[in-house]
């Protein structure tokens, strides 16, 4: 049985979704695009450590954008920094 509180929360959320329709739509689109980018970037690292230009070339994304993703994945523990290759560092998927 659903408590009254939960019921009203559910209705409230519904109303909130209606109210914030535009920003929610934007966020959903962003999530979709981001997930694709993250997937493409992670795909590049599956075969071993790669530099930002290498990942960018493989994933078909601009280098500056790839760096922002890689820095964030590193922050949230999904990527680690590997050895240096010339002027660039290699990035690897974090061991699970």
């Amino acid at each position: 049985m659903m408590s009254d509180q939960k019921k009203s929360d559910k209705e409230g959320l519904k109303a909130l979704r209606q109210q914030r329709k535009a920003s929610i739509e934007r966020a959903r689109k962003a999530i979709k695009a981001q997930n694709q980018n993250v997937k493409a970037i992670r795909e590049q690292m599956k075969s071993g450590g790669k530099t930002i230009p290498e990942i960018a070339a493989g994933a078909g994304l601009p280098t500056d954008q790839v760096l922002v993703y890689v820095a964030s994945l590193k922050k949230y523990g999904m990527v680690i920094e590997g050895p240096k290759d010339g002027d660039y560092f290699k990035y690897e998927l974090a061991p699970k």
Partner: peptide, 16 residues
């Protein structure tokens, strides 16, 4: 910091 080192924001190159 965001990279925990100093690299170029455009492509991650360590600056000379």
């Amino acid at each position: 910091g965001p990279y925990q080192r100093v690299i170029r924001p455009s492509d991650g190159k360590e600056p000379d």
